[in-house]
Design a binder for these strands. Structure first.
Lengths: 328, 328
DNA sequence: CTGTTAGCGCATTCAT
DNA sequence: ATGAATGCGCTAACAG
């Protein structure tokens, strides 16, 4: 492998001079620069990143921890991150936990060892030990999707989004509205969205029956099962169901259609996430767009600012957009 | 930051000894080992990866170049890669081209500069300059999804899969079968799948009308448009349509349903890819599963074997599985 | 404007 | 079994 030393010898200058043209730093005569550049061109020399990092303590690598890469939300976020980071010469080091919360912690350590310049955590929970670890870390960390004290984050307006959607149902004349949520360990999706639903119902003096509110996990089948439970439970059936994700909504619709129920005439359905498929299923799903790519971009910006120790606004809550289609 | 030198001092041994316990290499007395381990424990010391890399020339990082992370195929591959690599202490450095073929080449260089130990290229084409560059690279590269001479790859059996699917239509009594394909720059999807379709048709003495064969790009709307062209073209209409991806098939179905055509009674549809949504749309889509995760795992295995310079079988063609559902 | 010098943190001979 | 010495490839004072 060709090194800076050899380039220096071939160009008949010192290593420092080569380094200077490489980094555009300090003074270097036009003559010397041309000579060096020519030699670099000829040899196809590329500087060693790890030697460089050893000196500068910067790797230009950002670690990204995510629960899965197989659903749209994290994929879009990573795309956004990638776009923004690439422009600044940063790369992404991927750490996929496959929904294993233990690994979230492990990766936080591992990425430190890997000496990344910063970390983006696509968060699914805000467990105290996780937040503790983030604060202890000597490198900047930005969370996406969850909020926590004294931590940088980019999050969505889950509470208002849930109220907006519930409000839409009410506006369309629905009074009996069901809810398919997820576990409360996920504060953003499990608590905030549910709270928005409850509060909006209450604000309109609408009752919520226990049977209408089901807990699911993050997959389509689980949405199906939850809808089934709501449908087969005793008592009054809701005329509308709010699922906290599009996939859950799709599962619910799948059940309803199978039972011969019409959407939205018999039961209206809405989700959150603006998944690509939501506009191709029948009926087209009413949902909320969260601007995931933008979340990624903003998180990257925050992180880079922090790395370059500019002043940063530590938190950011993104706006959302209601997409009214045919399922409500 | 605490370094090996400080650990040595605190443990009252030499740096070499610390290095030995760190890497389990050479002799070190039980006494010394314990002392060192204790100090490491106390200080929370972690060795600097880049200093280590500078010495060993190994980074334990694999670069992954992909066209997008927003569709299921690459996502699944990356998941498979991640699982296998993680077990061996390797990490993934992500390079997203966003379908820009120029960037494929750029990233190949960039990853070299980043001194990754190997590269996985989720390939969309086999342009000569791309293949040339791969061969020139001093680090091992495994392609996924495309085949080429003198390059390591893991690919799918596109040709046979296409014949199988076409054969299924024929078996169900269809004689007029349409085809929605993609550009031939993508050899695997654009050429092989089409060839399989043509050959199977010919083997049964079935004619193919020009209007039945449409070219699309990789998105749902394009499948819709292609189906529309087939439907609105002059001449005899096919009773079945083979789309080369599930998303294209979904687009085609979307058009057919909108036109009030029944699937599969009026027009049967099949795709390739076994996308998650394929089993939740109506009717459930007949498709082919390509084992993308396994492709990722196998590519990782190949790469690691190559890095550790064991002998490798340079190429691997994965098997596929027909999933018969309700759309045919 | 340029070269000399001195490490960055680690693994690896080579002596002892 | 251990330590001293060396250098991986690079950047950054500093002196000229």
């Amino acid at each position: 492998m060709v090194t800076i030393k050899e380039i220096a010898e071939m160009a008949q200058v010192s290593r420092s001079t080569v380094s200077r043209v490489l980094n555009d730093s300090g003074y270097v005569s036009e003559e010397a620069r041309e000579k060096v550049e020519q030699v670099i061109e000829e040899t196809g020399y590329v500087p060693s990143q790890y030697a460089k990092s050893l000196r500068t303590k910067r790797t230009k690598v950002i670690g990204v921890i995510l629960p899965t890469i197989q659903t749209e939300t994290p994929s879009r976020i990573v795309t956004g991150l990638g776009k923004e980071l690439e422009e600044h010469g940063y790369q992404i080091l991927l750490a996929n936990t496959n929904h294993d919360k233990e690994k979230e912690l492990e990766y936080l350590d591992l990425l430190k060892v890997r000496q990344v310049d910063g970390i983006v955590l696509i968060a699914t929970n805000t467990a105290p030990n996780l937040i503790e670890k983030i604060k202890e870390l000597p490198i900047p960390v930005v969370m996406i999707g969850q909020e926590a004290e004294n931590v940088m984050y980019v999050s969505y307006n889950d509470y208002d989004a849930a109220r907006t959607l519930t409000s839409l149902f009410i506006q369309k004349g629905h009074k009996k509205i069901g809810f398919i949520g997820v576990d409360e360990s996920d504060k953003a999706v499990g608590i905030l969205r549910k709270q928005g639903y409850y509060d909006e119902m209450q604000a309109h003096g609408l009752p919520v029956e226990e049977n209408w509110v089901q807990k699911a996990v993050f997959n389509i089948d689980s949405g199906y099962d939850a809808m089934k439970k709501i449908h087969t439970s005793e008592g009054v059936l809701p005329s509308a169901v709010f699922a906290v994700t599009d996939r859950l909504a799709i599962g619910a619709m799948s059940y309803l259609k199978q039972e011969g129920l019409r959407i939205p005439e018999d039961v209206a359905v809405a989700g959150i996430g603006a998944s690509e498929i939501s506009q191709y299923i029948h009926p087209k799903l009413t949902t909320i767009d969260y601007q995931n790519e933008k979340a990624g971009e903003e998180a990257a910006k925050q992180l880079l600012s922090c790395i370059h120790s500019k002043k940063v606004k530590e938190k950011m809550i993104l706006d959302y957009r209601l997409i009214e289609r045919d399922s409500v």
